[in-house]
Design a protein around this nucleic acid. Structure first.
Lengths: 198, 198
DNA sequence: GTGGGCTATTGACTTCAGGTCAATACGGGA
DNA sequence: TCCCGTATTGACCTGAAGTCAATAGCCCAC
């Protein structure tokens, strides 16, 4: 069946997302995908020049959705509420797209620079959402200890979240509150004394 | 040149470790390795039945060395000193085997279960070293919030450490102390009030 | 020393998946 | 109805993983 460029592209992208979420990169063959789409392999290569490009396109779409979910929270919240709401959105989104999230974060192709860049982009956006946009950020940005700690906290979140996907021993609210609390403890540890209100 | 089984095996393992540390899994070909070892490809397959097995063998060796480095610290230290010493050994070892460490943690084959198991083994050993062997552990083990937090902290460490390898903005001692401090803050947050001495 | 057997070693072969390309089918506009 | 652009095909190429029957070198019994 002949399809318009955009429709065919969207169909292939959707198929790829499903396949790469369910199976590992190497376990998804282009022939399989073409067969699923009921087209020839040549046509698939007409739309995506390499398997890796197709994979990255799918991954980017997943990442973009995650970023939208996390960053579309009210801007006028207090820092701690902002973090809590962002984490809530993050966890909610992940709950609904478990397989996609895991394949995103586990990085099907460990060392591919483009894949790394996609994941890094998600982290940067999270960093911005949780910290840069907060009122005291201007005083913290540029402080290595601070920046390193916040990135470390993001590692904490990713780790915890992946564990949680596999084996949810705490409720979403509990995880959210735990991560929030730890973020602020971390900030307290690395902040200049002026911020240590407790 | 004809070699004894063990020697040939060791030679191939060493070559593989070097190659896989320097380049990505897919960028290392069996033909290359065989050529480097000045043997035929068939012989290589006589020693390691698949490329993946060879890769995992190299990775396991790297992981084992890291574990040895971290766990061979005096057993009679106070918990906080134990953690600090363990982290010091960890960072020292990583400094000396940067490429190997990064290839271990980035997981050249993201979704391979055996690779995941190797990395998971390292984490488990670190968990044990830093926490289980400490005096108050019996009261904390089994508490989900606690276990999740410590695993999260390990994520914090891995993240921070990889960043640090690429862009060392703090000294090793500073990173070590930061990670130690954060571990104890995390423990404080999730511990029953009885442990909150500060 | 020599013949026999064990094992390290070879190299040509197979397989399979990613990627290429010239040729074709289809549809809309003049 | 013809023409042209583009979606589509399928046969082909390539390179790397993995196989295997055959060989070469060494040690030991005689």
């Amino acid at each position: 069946m002949r399809l318009e460029n955009d429709q065919r592209r969207a169909q292939l992208l959707a198929l790829a997302r499903t396949a790469f979420s369910a199976r590992a990169y190497d376990d998804v063959s282009i022939d399989d995908l073409a067969r699923d789409a009921k087209i020839s392999k040549g046509l698939l290569y007409h739309y995506f020049p390499t398997k890796r490009v197709l994979y990255v396109a799918g991954l980017s779409a997943i990442a973009a959705e995650l970023v939208v979910a996390v960053t579309s929270i009210p801007a006028d919240l207090a820092p701690i509420e902002r973090a809590r709401a962002g984490l809530d959105a993050y966890l909610e989104h992940i709950t609904r797209h478990r397989a996609a999230f895991i394949s995103l974060m586990r990085g099907g192709i460990g060392s591919d620079p483009e894949v790394a860049e996609v994941i890094e982009g998600v982290r940067r956006r999270m960093f911005d959402t949780f910290v840069v946009d907060s009122p005291f950020a201007p005083l913290l940005i540029g402080n290595p200890k601070f920046e390193i700690s916040v990135r470390g906290w993001i590692g904490f979140v990713e780790f915890t979240t992946i564990d949680w996907c596999v084996n949810p021993r705490l409720s979403r609210a509990e995880i959210r509150d735990l991560l929030t609390e730890i973020l602020f403890e971390v900030l307290r540890v690395v902040s200049p004394p002026v911020f240590r209100t407790q």
